[in-house]
Amino acid sequence: MKKNPLTLTIGLLLIFIVGLLLFVYQVRTSEVVVVTRFGKPDRSEVKPGPYLRFPWPIENVHRFDQRVQNFEDKFTEGTTRDGFTLLSSVYVGWRIVDPKVFYPNFAASSEPIMAAEQLLDGRLSQAKASIAGKHLLTDFLSSQGEGNKFVDIENEILAAVQSELRTNSYGLKIEFLGIKRLGLPESVTQSVFERMQSERKLLADKLQWDGESEAQKIRSEADRRAADIIANASGEAVRIQGLGEAEAAKSLAVFQQNPDLAAFIFRLSALEGSLNQRSILIFDQNTPPFDILRGASTNLLHK
């Protein structure tokens, strides 16, 4: 039987594939790799791509996730500069930047990431405590205008941990850090509640009194406006009256011709006007025309 070119091709291909599997490995973007030769770290690869290796047992490839790991430390107590106890926990995003340094530090553990996080936990607690001790409670909690330093505090903790990690190189780097929880000791919350309760009471009372005094203000303002309106109207009425009188005064010239007659006519009409309804008139015999009953009119007879 002759050599079959197809068989040869397939054979070569298989050799190639096996070689590929044995001598080539891939580094992903998300990974960093440490290659150990006979157990000793030989080189590390940070850039993604295919790399050559000697097959096991000569060389061993250790892969580490180089993506940002989330870690949250314990909720621990700290004391502020002004003596308040504050519970806090922070989160960090950290990543392995130098696997060759990272590997020997944490290789002993079966979970190198967790071992590294344990280390971080300790460092973070220290940094938190020391930074909290430098700040007042109002630096954590106060409105924007009153010197809230929330973000500054985070940056200070980050700087402290970072400098710590720089001096003792662990091959890892903290990308970002933030406060995740803030709290008060359980016993303190009760007194906070009591304070809040009295604040609420004050607020409720204030609202009530404010409302009442506001209402009072509205009422008295209304009364004042009403009085103003009436006063204005009275003034207007007087003015109208004056107008009428001025107009009437024009007619006085007519009466000037004979004031006696005018007075007489006015008195007559006043008399008539005052006695026109349901009135009782008491008079004696001197009142004309009843003087006639007394015999005053006998003058006429004597004439």
Binding site: E272, L275, N276, S279, I280, L281, I282, F283, Q285, F290
Partner: peptide, 14 residues
């Protein structure tokens, strides 16, 4: 005219 309108009239003699 007034006296016709007035309801009660009381007349006092001297």
């Amino acid at each position: 005219r007034v006296l016709t309108n007035v309801q009660d009239k009381i007349f006092l003699t001297e």
